[in-house]
Design a binder for these strands. Structure first.
Lengths: 173, 173
DNA sequence: CCAAACTTTCGATAAATACTGAAACATATG
DNA sequence: CATATGTTTCAGTATTTATCGAAAGTTTGG
């Protein structure tokens, strides 16, 4: 029978690789999701080389995705005294993780849509033909709604954990 | 100077092609997003052939993506009396569109993550080593939070428009 | 200011995903 | 039940995206 240590290794590997596959459904790449999973479950901060080694990936790939995760705010760079090397550690607080993902996805998914809709709305303003008016109306409802979702995202991502949970409980008991 | 009709055609084309590009950021494919945009701004329901023609795409591609949009609930199939051919028309109500997207994304993005986390949580339950306990704790917070998000999605996607807006206003004035 | 330690970039390659076009399949109607 | 009309599938191809690995760039300490 397997000992706990072996079982844990297998379990972590499963988690990392599956989280990676999930990432691809999410529109982020496999490696990025795997690194995130790896560091969320690592007791220690890890260096680029350790990540490369652990996931059997190239330096370039590890580097690109570590930096991207830092951009998302899901990893922090830390250093150890007397060492030049940079280590990466994951944000572990789930509410923080959530806020950062919301913020990033809003930036990539909502804001550009809003820009497009605003443009189309403005360009079709004042059209007289039936087709023109219908288009303008549809743009208007889409624009209003997306603007609203955008605002909601900001509010939610701006809340501290306690506040958000309190609110959620009040709403949904 | 261009007439309104010409300007509208250009504007619609821009909208359709840009919405398509946006789709790729969203993890849905370009054609699917373009068809959706096309039908949201079409005064009439369109047949597969008309969609093929308008977007210059193959029958197979048009077919696959029309069906996928129907699965998402973003298009409806309609028929005209005395005709065998199927036509597709878009759901135009923004709140309906939103609900359906939330539902679909929850299914693809949240549910599988929850399954994975539940599995890892169960497997690491009762581990005694420091590493095992740490892993179990992290899985627990992730699982709880994702479960919570899942529930919230269901609630929001289940609300009628009026209710949701009322709620939103109360929250965010 | 040189060498060592470490990080970043980038062209080439591999892998994944989307799309085509033609053929197979289904169904309504004379 | 044959034909015309409409739908679906699928193997091959194209496009896009991710990854590799080597070379170039940076920084620090001696």
């Amino acid at each position: 029978m397997k000992g706990e240590a072996e079982k844990l290794v297998v379990l972590k590997d499963t988690f990392v690789s599956q989280w990676g596959i999930m990432g691809t459904q999410w529109g982020i790449n496999r490696t990025m999701a795997q690194i995130h999973a790896l560091l969320m479950t690592s007791p220690e901060a890890m260096s680029t080389d350790e990540v490369m080694e652990e996931l059997s990936i190239s330096r370039g790939n590890a580097h690109t995705n570590l930096k991207e995760l830092v951009n998302w705010g899901l990893l922090r760079i830390v250093t150890r005294k007397g060492e030049r090397r940079e280590y990466f550690e994951a944000e572990l607080d789930v509410w923080e993780i959530f806020r950062r993902i919301v913020r990033e996805r809003k930036k990539r998914e909502i804001d550009p849509a809003l820009d497009l809709l605003e443009g189309c709305l403005a360009e079709s303003q004042g059209m007289k033909s039936a087709g023109g008016r219908a288009f303008n109306e549809q743009m208007k409802s889409l624009e209003e709604f997306v603007r609203f979702v955008s605002k909601m995202s900001d509010r939610v991502a701006g809340m501290p954990h306690g506040k958000a949970m309190q609110l959620a409980m009040k709403l949904f008991g």
